[in-house]
């Protein structure tokens, strides 16, 4: 257990959680002006679209050490432990967000939603496209959302859930589904995809 935790770079993950909470507190209300290529005009995106990549990337950094042959052959299901680690990191973020909210911070709910969604997206991509895709998918998605969101026209679309501000039920549901699917993909990490299983 100790070795597992050490290999998962626990201190780095904890540091990232604290750093993201601090950044959300400081920059949470900042709007990042960016040209929306979909509108051909400057739109203003909340910084919480970008900030959750801190924890999302670090979670992937933590899990990079997983999946070795030793772990697959081991008695302990490290895949389940990894999923639990991700869930606890997200839970810590939510609890930290509640504390910051109580202290006068803002947008912590949106930051937690986006972190959960990005982490889920990365874990799904890692399962489907290969391990390194897990770190690319959330960042690529953020760039696509930032380039195409229609904030000035007030339109919110299903795929632009990270830019939904304040929290909408729909955006929380989408992020939640992605997170749950990502955790499931982690739990089932050491099992091949159905198509690969058939080939064997």
């Amino acid at each position: 257990m100790t070795w597992w935790l050490r290999s998962r770079r626990g201190p780095a993950l904890l540091f990232a959680i604290v750093a993201q909470l601090a950044l959300t507190w400081i920059l949470g209300e900042t709007l990042v002006p960016s040209p929306s290529l979909a509108e051909g005009a400057i739109t203003r995106l909340p910084a919480i679209v970008f900030l959750p990549l801190v924890v999302a990337s670090t979670i992937y950094f933590s899990l990079e050490a997983s999946g070795g042959a030793i772990e697959v052959a081991g008695v302990r299901r490290t895949a389940v432990m990894d999923a639990a680690l991700v869930a606890s990191a997200l839970a810590t973020l939510v609890v930290g967000g509640v504390v910051i909210d109580a202290l006068g911070g803002a947008f912590t709910g949106e930051a937690a939603r986006n972190t959960a969604g990005y982490v889920g997206l990365g874990l799904i991509a890692a399962k489907l496209l290969g391990s390194r895709a897990g770190s690319v998918a959330p960042a690529a998605y953020v760039v696509l959302v930032a380039s195409t969101s229609s904030r000035t026209s007030g339109l919110s679309r299903l795929w632009s859930w990270p830019a939904d501000n304040p929290l909408t039920a729909r955006s929380v549901i989408v992020a939640g589904i992605l997170c749950v699917l990502g955790l499931l993909a982690t739990v089932l990490r050491d099992r091949p995809l159905p198509s690969l299983a058939r080939q064997r």
Partner: peptide, 22 residues
């Protein structure tokens, strides 16, 4: 580490290209 370098390169380069416009 790739987990930081790749998303950093994607989002960082995007911000450096588009943010100065604003």
């Amino acid at each position: 580490p790739g987990a930081f370098a790749i998303p950093g390169a994607v989002v960082g380069s995007w911000l450096l290209i588009v943010y100065p416009v604003a």
